[in-house]
Amino acid sequence: MSTATDLDRPAAAPAFQQVSTNRKTRNRIATGLVWTAFTAALLPLVWLLITVLARGFEYVLTADWWQKSFAGLTSRQFGGGVYHAIVGTLLQGLICAIIAVPIAILVAIYLVEYGKNSRLASAVTFTVDILSGVPSIVAALFIYALWVTTLGMPRSAFAVSLALVLLMIPVVVRTTEELLKIVPDELREAAYALGIPKWKTIVKIVIPTALSGIITGISLAIARVMGETAPVLILVGYNSFINYDPFAGSMASLPLLMNSERLTTNDVGEARVWGAAVTLILIITLFNLLGSLISRATSLKTK
């Protein structure tokens, strides 16, 4: 019995056309452009990482590097470590975060939950936009003028933190604002309909829903301000000893250490600068990883 019936033959010419050459070409060009842009963006980054790691990685491999300062060492002696600068960077970043994060989150809550389209809210948004465009040196000089010149306080790590606060607030406000905006209004309404007051809705429903993103935003912002250089150059002195007091005395930090050891024009200086650069990159990476870990732990689950 023959099974080759009419059904096996196409009844008519195919109704669909092939992808036109014109579209294929355009697709290829666009793909090429995207890849070129991607490479152009990535290349400097990879280059920088390789250079820094190649020149500095060997110095951070000793235990002393992470536990000791340069105290008692001259600029011709190898050895010692950057513990004093790590302490400074972390302390300044932490104090900055403690001051900036609550302010920024409250501002974002006001903008999204209360201000909406009010005139004050648009004024605040405008100010935050301007603040986010302020160069770090301007923030540093402003704090110098306010804290040191006007109020007569000494230069200190705390002054650095204050300048960093100015740089951190707009970043955290922006990210928190965006995240609160994407929390659906339906959740707010569901809470109101249960007789939950507005402030409790914000604290217990809205913020927890956006929390994982907010934490990521904060950790990125901390990582960013820890690498800021202008405030530490202007607002605190360098010293090679360990100083835990943010209100008195000079305090090293990794960017500041790099800048002062840069002037040591021998192998020792070079080792210290590249080593500090690797250390700073590692610490910032660690912060970003920590942020994404916490955000994964707090992210919304459906299973």
Partner: peptide, 11 residues
């Protein structure tokens, strides 16, 4: 009140 789209609290 119960709404049009189910809206359980995701957290």
């Amino acid at each position: 009140m119960v709404f049009q789209r189910p809206n359980p609290f995701p957290t």
